[in-house]
Amino acid sequence: MSAVAAPDLREVNRRFYDALWRDARLIQPQRFNTWSLVDELATGTPRRLEIAPGLRPRLPIAGTAFADISAPALRQLGAHGGHAVQAQADALPYADDSFDLLCAFDIIEHIEGDEAAMAELARVAAPGAVLLLSVPIHMAAWTVFDEFVGHHRRYEPEALLALLARHGFATQRSAAHGMQPESTRLLKLGMWFLTHQRQRAMWWYNHVFMRFALDTQAPLALQPGMIATDGVDTVLLVCRKAAAA
């Protein structure tokens, strides 16, 4: 299956996530199973950037730069001490070599021009910077959920590693990741409520489903290099940008 065509994927994403974050609660990064990894990497690293976190940031909020297209998310991130700007991943308003730790969770699959987005991440990353990246993998696993939330593609693991390498990032560690329900029936039910009864759906999402998902997260099991990806829906990669010659 090839990448999914859409007449204006950026606008689809903006409408969907503006509506989602307008009624959602900001969740502190300490609640996610990525926190021990993030805490290790962020300690003593003040130059941090997270791309399009919405209200689910993984990096420490205070002092971190956040670039997102969603105004409701940016308002809350700024109110909690983040340096929040409205910007797109393929046109970042930062100087070259500005950051030592970058994070892009479940983002580049939403962008038609993923080469441009990766080029921007590489441009603003200082030599030796760490990039935390997560993406859905295997186009054969495509579901209606991918289309509903504005995905442009899923990645084949070898193609993902090649994309990173073209922009100077080497993969050091990886792990299975993601909080998407496995039940297709549950996904369809959730999407129906988000479409037809958004306020009720958001109440359940904030007060029940998200809390349950956070409480039942499996520990992050990082392994060297790329993990075996059979049966994996989303992969998290710890990458490092090549140091200056």
Score class of each variant (00 low, 15 high):
42 A>Y: 00
72 P>E: 00
34 T>Q: 09
226 M>W: 10
108 I>Q: 03
55 L>T: 11
100 D>I: 02
162 A>W: 05
181 P>D: 12
150 G>A: 02
62 A>P: 03
136 P>D: 15
234 T>K: 07
130 V>Q: 03
144 V>A: 07
209 F>C: 06
176 A>D: 08
46 P>A: 01
241 K>Y: 10
1 M>V: 15
106 D>E: 15
124 V>P: 15
102 L>W: 11
245 A>E: 15
243 A>N: 08
172 Q>I: 06
37 L>S: 01
164 L>F: 03
35 W>Q: 01
65 A>K: 07
204 W>G: 10
188 K>P: 07
202 M>R: 12
88 Q>A: 10
207 H>G: 09
25 R>C: 13
142 W>F: 13
137 I>R: 01
20 L>G: 11
14 R>W: 01
51 I>S: 02
224 P>Y: 03
218 A>V: 15
69 I>E: 14
202 M>K: 05
158 E>Q: 14
82 G>N: 04
225 G>L: 14
91 A>L: 13
115 E>W: 00
68 D>I: 02
85 V>R: 02
117 A>P: 09
183 S>L: 00
117 A>W: 06
201 A>N: 11
1 M>C: 07
65 A>T: 10
60 P>N: 13
48 R>H: 07
155 Y>K: 05
158 E>W: 15
171 T>A: 10
244 A>M: 14
163 L>T: 09
164 L>E: 04
37 L>N: 06
48 R>W: 08
91 A>K: 15
231 G>W: 12
88 Q>S: 09
134 S>Y: 09
11 E>G: 07
87 A>H: 03
105 F>V: 05
24 A>P: 12
25 R>E: 14
87 A>G: 06
148 F>H: 02
224 P>F: 00
44 G>Q: 03
211 R>K: 13
185 R>S: 09
31 R>C: 02
230 D>P: 12
104 A>K: 01
86 Q>W: 02
37 L>M: 03
61 I>R: 05
77 L>F: 10
68 D>T: 02
50 E>F: 03
31 R>I: 01
222 L>Y: 01
132 L>H: 08
99 F>I: 06
160 L>A: 05
221 A>V: 14
238 V>K: 10
77 L>Y: 08
48 R>L: 04
197 Q>D: 12
197 Q>R: 15
206 N>R: 11
202 M>H: 05
229 T>Q: 03
177 H>P: 13
16 F>S: 06
104 A>R: 01
179 M>H: 08
45 T>R: 00
27 I>N: 13
178 G>I: 11
102 L>M: 11
8 D>F: 02
86 Q>L: 04
20 L>M: 09
117 A>Q: 10
170 A>M: 07
90 D>Y: 01
185 R>D: 10
40 E>S: 14
50 E>P: 14
160 L>N: 05
78 G>C: 08
80 H>E: 08
8 D>E: 02
175 A>R: 00
14 R>K: 03
231 G>A: 14
205 Y>R: 05
110 H>I: 07
55 L>N: 12
94 Y>I: 06
28 Q>L: 14
2 S>P: 12
66 F>Q: 03
76 Q>S: 09
90 D>A: 00
146 D>V: 03
90 D>G: 02
179 M>N: 05
210 M>I: 04
4 V>R: 10
20 L>S: 07
118 M>K: 04
